[in-house]
Amino acid sequence: MSTTTLTRTSGSGALSRLTAVEARLFLREPSGAFFAVLFPAVLLTVLGLVMPWADLPFNDQDPILKQINGITGYAPTVLALAVATVGLSAYPQTIAGYRGRGVLKRMSTTPVPPSRILVAQLAVNLVALLVAAVLMFAAGALVVGVAAPAEPLVLLGAFLLSVLSAFAVGSVIAALAPNAPAATAWGMSVYFVSLFFAGVWLPLPLMPDVIQTIAGYTPLGAASEAMAAAWYGQPFDVAPFLVMAAWTLVALPVSARFFRWS
């Protein structure tokens, strides 16, 4: 019995230490840390300063959307972009790199299972994204007049679920890609398609109906929709939340089934 207790104690201590280590490693990659933490704030501020549509009503045909300016309308999309950058691109590349270098296999020789590195990565990236979101809103509100979210708690819920679903899809990429370069290539492909459906290139309301419908079934499209509705103060719609939950619930077991530690 005492052995079990010892193992468990060292296990939880190990996870917190592993998370602290992964956080330091995250900060030692300056470009990765910049894109995850600062880029959303920089992007929203620069767009707000240079784009002519930034301070015009987002959509003057719509009773709710005409009350917010264009840059506020774009804020949830930038948030979705930030989530996608980390969950679909940086995270699977890091994990596939760890596997290629034998980091995961080495951990599997210790009493702490290598899956804990994935948990630590998720924790570090989630915190980085929360910081990025706060910085983005602060810079946007101070510099270019981004309006505060109408439903902050719903927004937080939508944000957390979008992080989970993006990381679940990222885990599938990390599980199925044979090596780090393949993980990069697959991750970037999924990433750019996701950005399209999240409305980064063209705001979703301006897209044809069929594209909007498809976008609603992709994890990042749903994330963008849910966060936009909460930010703008549109009526609550459960559909995008269900879509994100479904992606998470399908992708996690798939990645767990196919994940190779070496």
């Binding site: 490693l25 760890y98 270098r101 034998g102 080495r106």
Partner: peptide, 10 residues
């Protein structure tokens, strides 16, 4: 193990 590394920046 053969060719087992740790994180490069660790």
């Amino acid at each position: 193990l053969q060719e087992s590394q740790v994180q490069p920046k660790l």
